[in-house]
Write a protein that binds this DNA or RNA. Structure first.
Lengths: 376, 376
DNA sequence: TTGAAAGCGGTACCAA
DNA sequence: TTGGTACCGCTTTCAA
């Protein structure tokens, strides 16, 4: 039925071990023999059996990718990451298996890792104190992290450079004259859980602002459209409403866009919006499209796989990699609105110090209402 | 280092084969021995080696999922599918490997399948004439399809019921009085490629319309925001502009929404929009949120894995499964606009027969322009 | 440079 | 009911 190495050996008139040698080049094989073996192989249509190879060599050439399940599906950015990881693995002669486990399911993950199907594990959505990582390390399973724990020790690590990203975001807006720059982060419970991106971005944003003598205004928004709407509404209701908003929460970003539309707020004339650690594929879907600091999803996948393979091959973890986000201008950021001259009475506004401005309060309306109003 | 079955056997004072038997229950084991074996196992922290087990039993308990690479990342619906497939596989004691291959890469897929890591393959995004499927069948690899080829023969198959979905979509809109119901399908090149969903939905839509004596108006839109905008613009420019639009092209749907916003078209008062084979997670992100015929992504994943496992277990393919989409009303569909009474002169319109209506032509504007106009 | 044989860690069949 | 053992298909010494 299936063609085995023994079949090839017989057809080529050599020993089984010689066939193996031509494949692995673990030992010299003369050109002549090699040619006969190769000929026999493709006459027979031979393919090496992955299971047997893995068992004998203690290297399955399979990598596992574990990601938290239960959370609202994969974001487009994460999906990008997964696909690129699978592709790079393939290019390297590896296969990628998916391990859907809860972030707290240490037992489950250690159990399946113990089965030895995978040579190593890529952990996504790493928490500052991550039981999965701890469990795998304790079990002696090679691990690479997408993200970082509080103390990675010698683990290979690739992550978004949140420090640089938020610094760049604030710098970009500050260069446009903004001083009231708010930040819509992930949900509050993420902080408590020690969700790396949330915590790191929060700190980076605060630092970037205070370094410039600006007052940070941070909102932890529920990861949903409603959460984003509420977040923006809250920001605009404040005494010192921001003139620019940075969003990192992909789901909430759609809500921010929706709220902007409902209030008929001109972007970027009245308010600048900058989506960070996002993807143009996502930001291009909002109305208006949002300028983005593009998360390096594909590069992260590539780097993560390569880091894990480096660990596997050399036994020592490669140095941690922090990848920057790239600015993609979709036109949603612009100069800070100038305080309106006193004589322009049509829309009274309250300019304040520091480039803050008090926009007129407009109630949010449903879109239907919004459109009905003037189209009837 | 690693605990082997032999270790367990020694500790329990039984033969290796007895340990195996307690695990596989392939043969009776007395309660007493079983207890001793089990005790030994968890004293030692034993876990069965997947590779060895697979090699010996000719069943790796690994399933492969292949999806076309190169196409613009995974749609949210597809991602939903992949995740649920991985999860169901896990529940069944299987692991899922990802095989990123081009739709035409028969050689690549057959090659990796020949390595025997996977017991069977799940093929996504199946084409009517699919070389991957042909190649795998010819190679004797168990296959299940997400989608259907033109002639599946005895292959296990799960798919969206496009016939029912488009029928339901048209029925839903027709019940609201619409007669001018247009359909924004995938890109034209998909038809040429024999992309199942595109072709089946196209036919189903035409049938659903003509069955009601309505004239089908179908647009094959580029899979992008721009494509969607252009599609809607084209429809509205026609002599008999539709009063309702069905969209199936997830990327273009965002464009349709954007164009609606740019033209300030009231949804659903002026135009009803219904996104089919989509996901509320997606439709909720547009402004306004779109009523959706929710694609059964998760169920498809579940059904696909189960179909493949059924084939693996019984040797005979289970009957094909067609899963319906479920209506999720987000308020973007409503009654057909009544032809305006002649005396209402504010916005001249041209009512036509058949419930068609000629909306006033409004040029599309950028959002910035749009908002600037009245907020300055 | 090549061949022979001992595992890798299990499953499955056989005899006891 | 249990123990012994022949493989599964390949990698990896070790001699020749």
């Amino acid at each position: 039925m299936v063609v085995t190495m023994q079949d090839v050996a017989r057809r080529a008139g050599v020993a089984l071990s010689t066939v193996s040698a031509t494949l692995t080049s673990a030992r010299p094989v003369s050109a002549a023999t090699r040619a006969r073996v190769v000929a026999a192989m493709d006459e027979l249509g031979y393919t090496r059996n992955a299971l047997a190879r893995g068992l004998a060599s203690r290297r399955s050439r399979v990598l596992a990718l574990t990601y938290p399940v239960g959370t609202s599906g994969l974001s487009r950015t994460s999906a990008e990451f997964v696909l690129s990881a699978a592709q790079v693995a393939q290019e390297r002669g590896y296969q990628l298996v998916l391990w859907p486990f809860g972030v707290a399911d240490e037992a489950g993950i250690v159990e399946v890792a113990g089965q030895g199907l995978a040579d190593g594990v890529l952990v996504m959505e790493v928490h500052l104190d991550d039981v999965r990582v701890r469990g795998l390390r304790a079990a002696g399973v090679p691990v690479a992290l997408i993200g970082r724990t509080a103390d990675d020790g010698p683990l290979p690590t690739v992550d978004v450079d949140f420090e640089a990203t938020l610094r760049d975001a604030v710098a970009h807006l500050a260069a446009l004259g903004h001083r009231g720059i708010a930040f819509v982060n992930h949900a509050a419970h993420r902080v408590a859980e020690g969700h790396g991106p949330t915590v790191r971005a929060a700190a980076a944003y605060e630092r970037a602002m205070t370094d410039r003598g600006l007052a940070p205004v941070q909102v932890f928004a529920d990861e949903s459209v409603a959460g984003g709407r509420a977040a923006l509404a809250g920001l605009l209701a404040a005494d010192e409403a921001p003139t620019a908003v940075i969003t990192m929460n992909e789901d909430a970003t759609f809500g921010v866009a929706a709220e902007l539309a409902a209030r008929r707020i001109a972007v970027p004339r009245e308010l600048s919006v900058l989506a960070v650690v996002s993807s143009p594929a996502v930001s291009g879907q909002t109305v208006p499209p949002l300028t983005t600091l593009h998360a390096p999803g594909a590069q992260l996948g590539r780097a993560g796989v390569d880091a894990l393979l480096a660990l596997l091959d050399t036994g020592t973890p490669p140095p941690p990699a922090l990848l920057p986000c790239r600015l993609v201008d979709c036109g949603s950021t612009g100069p800070v609105p100038a305080p309106e001259p006193a004589l322009a009475g049509a829309h009274p506004q309250t300019p304040t110090r520091d480039g803050h401005r008090r926009p007129r309060r407009r109630p949010a309306r449903t879109h239907t209402e919004e459109l009905d109003e003037e189209d009837v």
